[in-house]
Design a protein around this nucleic acid. Structure first.
Lengths: 121, 121
DNA sequence: GTCGTTGTACGATGAACAGCGTACTACTTG
DNA sequence: CAAGTAGTACGCTGTTCATCGTACAACGAC
C-alpha cells in the first residue's frame, strides 16, 4: 500500500516545466507513443533507445510536469496521457506538439535512431 | 553591405530546436512581446532582465531556430516573428505557446522579475 | 520461502547552456 | 575626423541535465 506517486495539480503546472519536458526527443517519443495507441502501458512496453534507469528518469520528468499519470499495477506501472488536463491548462499545446512530432516523423530523417522500424510492432 | 544574417529554411527547422528555444522564459518573453505589439523592434526595445550580451545570445537562438527574422537597419536590428512560416511548419504550435504564456501571466505569479511594470512603457 | 519481473535510488560523468564582462565592429551623427 | 549607438565575439563560470551502472525494493508466481 506504499507506492503512491505524486501528481501535480493541473492548475499549478508551469509552462516552463511542460516545455522543458517536451523539449527532449525521448520524452516526445513517449508522449507520441502514448497518443497513438500505446496508452495505459507499462514503461518497458515503450521501445526506447536508452537504459532502464534513464527511462525511469524520463517518465518521472513527464509525470512531474503534469503530462502523464502513473499508477502502479503489480510490479508494473500504467502510464496514461493527461490529455484533458493539459488541454484545460494550455489549450492546443499538447496536440500541436504531437502533431508536429508526427509531421516531422513522416518527413523521414528521424533523429531518434533505433526506434524507426519497431514502433509499430 | 556586410551584415547579412543567416536564417534557416523553414522546411529544415527541427521541432527539437524550436522547442528548446521556446523552453527558455527569456526567449518566450521576447516571442510574447513580439506577438503583442512589439513586432519589428530593435533588440534594446525589449526590456529584458539580462545583460546585453546575454540578450544577443537569446535573439540568435531564436533566429537560428527559425522563430524570428533579424534584419539590419543602421546599427540596429529589426526583429520580426516568423508566424506564417512557423504555422506552415508546425501548425498551431507557436500560437499555443504564446497563448499559454499569456494565460500563465494573467494568472499572476510571474516568474520573470523585473519586467512586470515596465512592459507597457 | 525463492525466483523472476518491473521499476527506483544513488552516485558519477560529461555535455550543453545561460549568464556575465570586456573588447570589438559597424553604422550614424556632428 | 571623433563620439555615440547597437549589437557581436570571445572567454569564462556555474548549473542543469541526460546518461550510465549497480544495488535495491515491491510485487507476482511457484
Amino acid at each position: 500500500m506504499a507506492r503512491e506517486l505524486d501528481h501535480p495539480d493541473i492548475g499549478t503546472v508551469s509552462l516552463d516545466t511542460v516545455l522543458a519536458a517536451l523539449a527532449d526527443p525521448i520524452r516526445r517519443e513517449i508522449i507520441t507513443q502514448l497518443s497513438t495507441g500505446h496508452n495505459d502501458q507499462a514503461c518497458i512496453a515503450f521501445d526506447l533507445p536508452v537504459s532502464k534507469s534513464t527511462s525511469t528518469h524520463h517518465f518521472r520528468v513527464l509525470r512531474e510536469a503534469g503530462l502523464i499519470t502513473q499508477r502502479y499495477e503489480g510490479t508494473a506501472i500504467r502510464n496514461t496521457l493527461r490529455c484533458e488536463d493539459m488541454d484545460t491548462r494550455f489549450p492546443g499545446l499538447l496536440d500541436a506538439v504531437i502533431d508536429a512530432e508526427c509531421r516531422t516523423r513522416s518527413q523521414g530523417a528521424n533523429r531518434l535512431v533505433g526506434v524507426d522500424a519497431t514502433v509499430g510492432a
